[in-house]
Design a protein around this nucleic acid. Structure first.
Lengths: 174, 174
DNA sequence: ATTACCATGTAAGGGGTTACATGATTCC
DNA sequence: GGAATCATGTAACCCCTTACATGGTAAT
């Protein structure tokens, strides 16, 4: 049920069309809560029907601009403060680790090597976006910086873990 | 499509019934790839139909015991070595961070305090299971230990991040 | 006998993905 | 005029969750 809240959240920055929101979902939210066009347009319809947003303007090319209503803002605040975030489940990569004994040691090591590389790569992407938005975030988007820091620490953790795991494997092999 | 591979993976440890597998999904796999009864029985049926597992025994109480076929093992290996794990997406908690500016500073700080507490709690649970399985894992379940270590490092990262974020907020508030 | 546990299945509904479909406007 | 972009919508399909439904077996 969080696409709904992601949309409400984005509308706190100002009115926007489905198309506008989609750019954000594919941009800064891509690593946190991606959404497809199909899904978003459907959800905006439901949000309007539920009175959490309203159409404030109909522009060219059937463009509809949506704005948050009081009820929408209330729902967003409720979600932020009263609803417990779900703990992370379903980790594709870790599931594979569980069964890595099925293939031989070399392939196990290669798997971990790849994870290490992927973490490095992902981290450098995050650093790139960090530098791209650095100027304007003197104190403006504190929470944006905090979210980004999570990504940096996560990828760093993954990198170190994968390196450690390779050593463990080497030890176990002797 | 990973429930299928989780089931195949578990069957490499020996034949088992849907009910047996379910205990594992609710036990050691709960933090990695949970599955419901309803879903699992359905998937086992599809796996049998696809020839990746076979019913090796029909016991009391309609119990069916499944075993991996050669095709099933091949599919599992293929998934382990050739299919790239999906990078983690959709983080409920981080999505909230993005919009935390909507509520006041105190509530923002409380949110982060809760995350810190949750990380501590989750980590101590992991340590408990670590000690519970320690004796038998001298070198037996290397990959199990490696997966567990991921959890310990993840929760530690989250704890430190949440603490850091609270400091950043305090700084930004002055 | 009753309770607890073993054991499997179906149905309804939500959320997500991919693909299909359509048309308006802007820019070259 | 043609291509790129803006802009919205529908349909089919898969995965997952919750709830409902049924019955066998073991232990007290």
């Amino acid at each position: 049920m969080s696409l709904r809240h992601a949309a409400l959240g984005l509308l706190t920055f100002g009115p926007a069309s489905g198309y506008d929101l989609l750019q954000t979902f594919n941009g800064s939210l891509a690593n946190v809560w991606p959404a497809t066009q199909s899904q978003l347009y459907g959800e905006l319809g439901k949000l309007a029907e539920a009175g959490l947003v309203t159409v404030t303007e109909e522009g060219a090319r059937r463009r509809k601009e949506y704005a948050l209503t009081d009820a929408g803002l209330a729902e967003l605040k409720h979600w932020l403060t009263d609803v417990e975030p779900t703990v992370l489940r379903r980790n594709d990569m870790l599931l594979r680790v569980f069964f890595l004994g099925v293939v031989d040691h070399e392939q196990g090591e290669e798997f971990l090597r790849k994870r290490e590389g992927q973490a490095v790569e992902h981290q450098s992407e995050l650093r790139a976006t960090q530098e791209a938005i650095a100027p304007e975030t003197a104190d403006l988007a504190v929470y944006g910086r905090i979210a980004l820091e999570w990504g940096l620490r996560y990828t760093e953790m993954q990198r170190q873990w994968a390196a450690w795991a390779q050593e463990e494997l080497a030890k176990a092999r002797k």
